[in-house]
Design a protein around this nucleic acid. Structure first.
Lengths: 346, 346
DNA sequence: TTGAAAGCGGTACCAA
DNA sequence: TTGGTACCGCTTTCAA
């Protein structure tokens, strides 16, 4: 009974228990676990003891003793957005093989929540930390600076990153979409975005829209801002309705996200409007729905998984440098490619 | 310069540094941090020292010393599925106010990956652990049993849970959908699901379909299984195509998920078929797309966020019981409600 | 190749 | 209300 612990809840085995059973010292057990050189016969005896007891080493004790945890902290605005969950998967894929464990936090687009989460994660002495975006509270910056932990900012291309950045310019990406639409011959183009000031990337896209419309000498005032972040499918319908009510002669709508673009298209269907013949609609992000719905949605494709992957690689490089005593000067600003994906809706 | 650490990277301040600066002992600092009773003037002095140094307590040291971490482990099959990310958000919402930190893992639907992740999370001595589903490897069960950590299994209603379970019977939910379709007058009903044996909940839905079709004396052989988990929108098109090619007189298709239902509807549109007049299509899960697309998708609504919330509450109850020395006999098997949501597509 | 001792940074416990 | 001391479970360091 006590062997499988089904009845009596004994305290879990310690390294010293394993050592005693194997007839060696704690240190030898520690070496076996760390993969250091140990005589093959000894190693086998120890491994057997580990298996027999079902020993699981205590990570907190190890971290305290060695002075290094195996945590990497990641903060995203919303886990519900497939874009960010893809980034998390990319990070996980690159870091897990190195024995690193993600500490994932969801800021819900709030900078003060980000600050709270950073403080909370810092308590676990993460090896490095990945944030989304380049806007942070002053307190967050101070916390990060003092901690000395390498930082990567994702999904943006800030002029002056804290440490390193892996992302792209949402302003430029939006400008490119405007150019695409203008090339297609659309002139009266509207923008559909969120009402919140919290989604900086959404605001940057709006900024890019305005700038490029102005540059092309087109009307840059057809803007509908509706709904809180994260923008979902349900925001698109009311938004396109408002756009068409206000400016009935609008030829194309550029949406801050594929989610709202999809909602907008569905609303158009309901109104008997054909997309893109009656009105063209473009999205952003290349979410799955944009490739599956009819008409397929013209969008800006972004490699969300790749952002995670490259962020992971950047963090690993920083760790390696630090290992070798080199002050981890991360390569600042890695650009991630994006492209306008011409499909049916615009 | 050293005050904000911008130039010299000094090792971060320790509790003893705070104590020295405030002119008190470490213990007093510890008490201030823990919110224990300390003279108001002393507390202020300590707090000032903390702020001045930017002190952040080391969680690993605290955990080691007190013998309890503030981690809760969660394992889901896929973070990319909004269903599971909603569950994670629910968990987070209920646990965060209690100072608990989630350790999130993505099993990618593989039981051996789950086993590896459980082992890895157990190293951090989590206060409790939430798993998805009720199928686990024998090694996973042994690990969990030996660890003594309270376990909650989510998204299923196992007959014999490890500890506690928060979910519902996917078999019964699927049966209910079949009944709904039969009541609507459909008789030649097909099932569209994934090819993989890994998604137990999907398999349970298939099982429920078969059982109820048989019970109603209807043909239960019209089954298309296509695509790996997680099932996405892109699986629905080929699947409905295969279904209609094999059994052209099919009147209704019941899909394992709203994702494939959506893909199927889009494919029908492309073929010039009207849903539900030419063919009815039902989904499962009440994903956002099912409420937004046209036609809106008849589905089984499940409170994914609520599963997370109730799981969190269950875990908190177990912790509280343990605190009071009561052996944490969790309430086994909490049922979460689901219901067939009649909409336009079926 | 292996072992003994010291100590990582906190908290529990008891004494003042 | 506060402080001293032991110690949590592991790794580092040094010696055998």
């Amino acid at each position: 009974m006590s062997a499988n612990g089904s009845d009596i809840v004994t305290s879990p085995p310690r390294m010293s228990d394993v050592a005693r059973l194997a007839g060696v010292s704690k240190m030898t057990v520690s070496r076996v676990l760390a993969g250091h050189s140990v005589a093959i016969t000894t190693r086998e005896r120890v491994q057997q003891a580990i298996d027999q007891l079902g020993y699981v080493a205590d990570a907190a004790a190890g971290a305290l003793s060695s002075g290094r945890s195996e945590f990497v902290a990641v903060l995203v605005p919303s886990l519900a957005s497939s874009n960010f969950s893809d980034t998390v998967r990319g990070l996980s894929a690159s870091l897990e093989p190195h024995g690193l464990q993600l500490l994932i936090g969801d800021t819900d687009y709030h900078l003060d929540r980000e600050e709270r989460l950073v403080r909370s994660m810092l308590r676990h002495q993460p090896r490095c930390i990945a944030l989304t975006g380049s806007r942070h509270t002053e307190a967050t910056r101070t916390l990060l600076r003092r901690s000395g932990v390498p930082v990567v900012e994702m999904w943006d291309a800030p002029a002056d990153p804290i440490d390193a950045a892996v992302g792209f310019s949402n302003v430029n990406a939006a400008r490119e979409m405007v150019r695409y639409l203008a090339d297609k011959g659309y002139e009266r183009i509207g923008f559909i975005g969120g009402a919140s000031e919290l989604d900086r990337r959404g605001l940057d896209r709006l900024k890019g829209f305005r700038a490029q419309m102005k540059a092309l000498d087109l009307d840059d005032t057809r803007i509908i801002r509706l709904g809180e972040s994260p923008i979902t499918m349900s925001h698109g319908g009311p938004a396109i309705a408002a756009l068409l009510d206000t400016w009935p002669d609008t030829q194309a709508a550029m949406c801050v996200s594929d989610m709202s673009a999809f909602g907008a298209i569905m609303e158009c269907h309901r109104r008997g409007l054909t997309v893109p013949d009656d009105i063209a609609i473009a999205g952003f992000g290349n979410f799955e729905v944009s490739a599956c719905c009819t008409p397929t949605i013209t969008t800006v494709s972004v490699d969300a998984y790749g952002i995670g992957l490259r962020t992971g690689e950047t963090l690993l490089a920083a760790l390696e440098a630090r290992e070798q005593g080199i002050e981890p000067k991360l390569n600042k600003r890695k650009r991630v490619a994006y492209e306008v994906l011409a499909r049916e809706s615009a």
